[in-house]
Design a protein around this nucleic acid. Sequence first.
DNA 1: ATATGGATGCAA
DNA 2: TGCATCCATATT
Length: 208
Amino acid sequence: MYSVQVERGRDLVSPSFFDRKTLKVARDLLGREIIRQVGPSWLRARIVETEAYLEKDDPAAHCSRGPTPRAKVMFGPPGVIYVYFIYGNYFMLNFVTEKEGKAGAVLIRAVEPVEGIETMVQLRGIRSEVLRGRSLLQLTNGPAKLVLALGIDGSLNGKPLALPHLAVARGKPVADKDVVVTTRIGINVAKELPYRFYEKGNPFVSKL
DNA sequence: ATATGGATGCAA
DNA sequence: TGCATCCATATT
């Protein structure tokens, strides 16, 4: 007799998945699934776009100025959730990579809803003009959008990945031929670094 | 193309 | 303490 949570937890990635080079993790996160329970609802969404933020030679990374109050979680153990607040309105979801003492994180920039879509629509704000009568692509095709749709906020910052609050499942890996590598989006420094990964042709990718 | 919004980090 | 900046979004 399995509980729902045990059943859900069968397919989770191990913490060692994140104990690797940040760029590797960012690429391998494509196709994995974010799983989370919000109230009575289980939410599941497939990762289709990521960005890597490194400790070395990456001035766009929060860890680039050392373990400041905000960035210290990036220097902590791998497999921990890093959520930060930006632009006075939004939270961003990241997963910490590399061994404790070495900084790194992967930003989740877009996901494809798999389960719990009705709940996601509600969390996102069904009254929004953007969603009303338009494509569900708007639900999760951006880093702040997916955070809203999944009901994530700053209270998850610094917590290890675990059910029921937030975990990553194996899902179906994306083949190399379907991975596109480009420069990151929305930053004003280190624009030339090819640290963004997305699934080729996936309509939920934030921007082509 | 522009308004919005609050935290962050560094200079002063 | 002040202030430029910030891994964005929705609306014009």
